[in-house]
Simulated assay, not measured.
Amino acid sequence: MTGTLQEGPTRLGRHDLRRRRALVYAATGALLAFGVVLSAGVGQLPIGPYEVLGSLARALGVPNTWAPTDPLIEQTLWQIRFPRVVMSALVGALLAAAGAVMQAIFANPLAEPGVVGVSSGAAVGAAAAITLGLTASGSWAVAVFAFLGGLAATLVVYATARAQGRTESVTVILTGIAVNAFAGAALAGLMFAGDTASREQIVFWQLGSMNGSRWGEVALVATVGAVGAVVAVSLARRYDLLALGDRTAGHLGVRVERLRVVSILLVALLTGVAVAFVGIIAFVGLVVPHIMRMLLGPANRALLCACLLGGAAVLVYADLLARTVVPSADLPIGILTSLVGGPFFYWLIRRNRRRAGGWA
C-alpha cells in the first residue's frame, strides 16, 4: 500500500489526503473565525464586525480606524463578550479532543468522555459545593469541587476496572455505567437535601451555560487545556498503532497499559477543566470526532487537530444560538447540544448496526 492510505471505502493518495486535510482545516478555521466575530457582535447591544475587529487589532497594538470610540462598547466586548466567546471555543475544543482520545483507546466511535464517569462525577462535586453553601466564595469553589469530583470518578473507574495488571476496555465501560448510576443517585440525594435555591442552581449548572465567564477562568482553562491538548497530539502515533490491536501494538513498542492509563487520566483532565466553570455540555465529544473522522479518516494526529478546531467552532455557534434563539433570555447551551447530539447518536447507532449486519 505504498503511497496510499486506506480511508473508509476509498483509497486516497497522499497528495489528495494532504489537500483534503488542508481544506478541512481552512474551512473549519474560517467558520471559527467568522463565528467569533459574529458572536462578539450579536447581543442586546449590537456591535458591528468592523468594530469587533478594530477592537481586537487595537488590543494587539495595530493602529486602525475601525476600533470603537464608545467606552461602553469596549467594556461590553472585553468584560462580557470576548471572555464568553473564548470560553466557548476552549470548552468545545477540549471536549472534542477528549472524545477523540476516548474513541481511539476504546476503538469505538460511540465512546465519549462521559463513559469514564467524569461528567457525572463533576456534577456531583458541583452539587456538593452548592448544597454546602460554598458558592458564597464565588464560582471557583464550584469549579474546584466539580473538577475534583470528575477526577475522583475517573480514578474509581480505573481502579475498579484494572485487574491482573491490565485494564479491559469493556470493563472500563461497564464500570463507568455503574459509577454514572451511583453518581445520579448521589446527585438526587444532594438535590433533596438542598433548599429550593440550591436545587435550581444545581439544575441550571447541569444544563450548562457560558454566561458570566471571566478572564481568570478563561486563562486557567486555556493553560490546562493547552497542556492536555499537546499531550494528546503527541500520543497520536501510538493511538494509530493501538488501532492494530493490543498485541500488535505491543510488538511495535507501544506500552499499551500505560497508554490507556495516561489517556484515561488525560480525558479526565480535559473534560474536568472544560466543564468545571460552565457545567455539563453533552454530545460534543461524540459528534465532532465522528464527523471529522468521516472527513479525514482515522489518522489520529490530523483528527485531533481537526477536533480542536471543529469543537471550538461548534460550541461558539451553539452559544450564539443559546443567546439569541429566545429573545431576552439565555438558553442553557446543554439543551441545544443535546437536541442535536441525541438524534445524531441515534443515527450513528443505526448506521453502525446496519454495517455490522446486526448486534454482536
Rank of each mutant, 00 (worst) to 15 (best):
T223K: 05
L259D: 11
A329M: 04
P289I: 01
R301V: 09
L72S: 15
G29D: 00
G245T: 09
G41F: 08
V118K: 00
S338G: 14
L269T: 11
R166Y: 08
R238W: 07
R162V: 12
A183V: 06
L23G: 11
L308S: 05
A222V: 07
A163Y: 15
L32A: 00
V36K: 02
A313M: 07
A236S: 12
R84F: 03
T271V: 07
T135G: 14
H15I: 15
F277W: 12
F145V: 07
A27E: 01
G176C: 10
R18G: 07
A146M: 02
C307I: 00
G297T: 07
A126S: 09
A127M: 06
E257V: 14
D246V: 03
A93Q: 02
L308K: 02
F147K: 02
A129F: 09
V85Y: 01
A26N: 02
Q201W: 08
A178N: 13
P49N: 08
G114A: 04
I333Y: 01
R255E: 14
G228S: 05
A161L: 12
L38N: 10
L348A: 07
E257N: 13
F82M: 15
L38R: 14
L339V: 13
G8L: 01
R351N: 09
S209Y: 03
T135C: 12
A185I: 10
W359P: 05
L348F: 04
G61I: 10
R199W: 11
Y346W: 11
R355P: 07
M210V: 01
V116S: 02
V218Y: 06
L17C: 02
N64W: 05
I177T: 13
A89G: 15
A122Q: 07
L303M: 05
L56C: 10
I281H: 02
W66L: 13
A127Y: 07
R355F: 08
R237Y: 08
A22R: 07
L269I: 07
G310T: 01
M294P: 00
A107C: 06
S328F: 15
A96P: 02
T135M: 15
A122D: 06
L60M: 15
P71N: 07
L244M: 12
G61C: 09
A30K: 08
N352M: 13
A128I: 11
V287R: 05
M191V: 11
L339R: 04
T4P: 04
A232P: 00
S328V: 12
A33L: 14
H290N: 11
L53Y: 07
Q164F: 15
I173E: 09
D195P: 11
Y25Q: 02
G194N: 09
V314Y: 15
N108G: 06
Q44E: 14
A141W: 12
V144F: 13
V42D: 05
P289M: 02
Q164V: 11
V314F: 15
A322Q: 04
G342C: 05
L17H: 09
M191F: 09
G342Q: 09
M210K: 02
L17S: 05
L242V: 03
L38W: 15
R166T: 11
T4R: 14
F106N: 03
A313C: 06
A67S: 15
G149K: 00
E168M: 14
F283G: 02
A107G: 03
R214M: 11
A97E: 06
T154G: 08
W140H: 13
M1T: 14
L244A: 12
E7Q: 14
